[in-house]
Design a protein around this nucleic acid. Structure first.
Lengths: 215, 215
DNA sequence: GGTATTTCTTAAGATATCTTATGTGTTCGT
DNA sequence: ACGAACACATAAGATATCTTAAGAAATACC
């Protein structure tokens, strides 16, 4: 009996440990798409990153707090949003598997963030603390390099989105969103997508109807 | 006589040379805002960067060409824009003194750019070629670091612009633009600002009138 | 399993923004 | 100095998008 119980809890521990290893390996593979890490750099991932899971509607950052972590999503989906002077929320970004979530501005300035980051699905992620990020930047050229490339890609994406916003109708923006994030489209409530596109849920509902009618 | 002429042309040469030195020093000061360069890194600027000047309406990149340079503006102003399927131009960005202009996507992929970059004022700038950029990245941690920070700031700006676009009226966006780029507002034709805001020139004209009337 | 809550749809009237057209003052090229 | 191109303003009617309100469908909670 006693043995059994010991084995059970031990194997439970093993599972958690195993999941963490899988997550770190996911992150390692992510970096492999840029400049692959060597053994020592790979070991830093184990040291610096911690795994957490949260439920839908829980936050990893709330407006007014300082953003203290870089977050790498393993599974699930987050949304980053701002609240305007009328109390309305506006989705700036969705962050799903293999993507990074953080408010860079708050992270580096260490001042209160204007943004919130909330789970729209149960989400598992890895986090690295502010000081560890700086440590990796300082001691490893490769982390500086890889993060440069990652941010460059996010910058390109953001610029494309600006272009969409200033040049396209709501319907065109929606269709662009469907093409760019085909899997997110199914997973997210209509109201969240509407907020991302900068339109009302009612209007997105009308757009969907008009697309179905046409096609 | 002969002496005089020699002196004149020599001093003309000196002026050009002097201007280049001033420009490189401007760039060096720009990097000083991040991680200051040491002597060797500073020397690389002289080797890698070339100065050019263009008139209003001339291009440093045209849609269909590959973006082969990073461009650092010393004086004047550029606009980066895309052309939509109806042939309309949409300003993605203005690039004035101490700012960088490039289509990162085309630059790294070495594929044809969708974007054009044109001078809206007579403009003087420094350029560094693709291979030299990669050389600086590879051989100097500090250039990787500095460009990471520069791109991060541009990414933050771009995200703020996305937020503005999805959350604010045209009038609010215009007022935000005035606050953020007070000097550009005077220098740029109304139509260029309207294109940047994603509205028609007629409507921006109406907005200006309504602001004057109110205030 | 049933009720509360969230999500989505629909539609009418209001508002923001665009389109088209026209006039006028300004700048540019020769 | 002249005409051509540009820049800006104005206004009327058209279109895109929002607001409000209500009901139906789906999902979460006890």
């Amino acid at each position: 009996m006693r043995d059994e119980k010991t084995i059970n809890s031990y194997s439970g521990f093993l599972n958690i440990k195993a999941l963490l290893i899988v997550s770190i390996e996911t992150l390692n593979l992510h970096f492999n798409e840029y400049f692959p890490l060597n053994a020592k750099e790979r070991d830093e991932l184990d040291v610096c990153f911690t795994q957490r899971s949260i439920k839908r509607r829980q936050f990893i950052l709330q407006q007014g707090e300082v953003c203290k972590y870089f977050t790498f999503v393993i599974s699930g989906c987050l949304r980053m949003y701002a609240i305007d002077k009328n109390g309305k929320e506006h989705n700036i970004q969705f962050i799903a598997e293999n993507d990074w979530a953080m408010d860079l501005s708050s992270f580096y300035s260490e001042k209160a963030s204007q943004l919130s980051i909330e789970a729209v699905e149960p989400t598992t992620f890895l986090q690295i603390k502010h000081d560890d990020v700086l440590h990796l930047y300082t001691d490893y050229h490769k982390f500086d390099h890889n993060f440069r490339v990652i941010i460059e890609q996010k910058y390109i994406e953001s610029q494309n989105r600006v272009l969409q916003n200033i040049s396209s109708s709501a319907e065109e923006r929606y269709e662009y969103f469907l093409k760019q994030y085909p899997n997110l489209a199914n997973r997210l409530p209509l109201a969240q997508i509407a907020s991302y596109l900068g339109i009302t849920p009612e209007f997105l509902s009308a757009i969907r109807k008009s697309i179905v009618t046409k096609g």
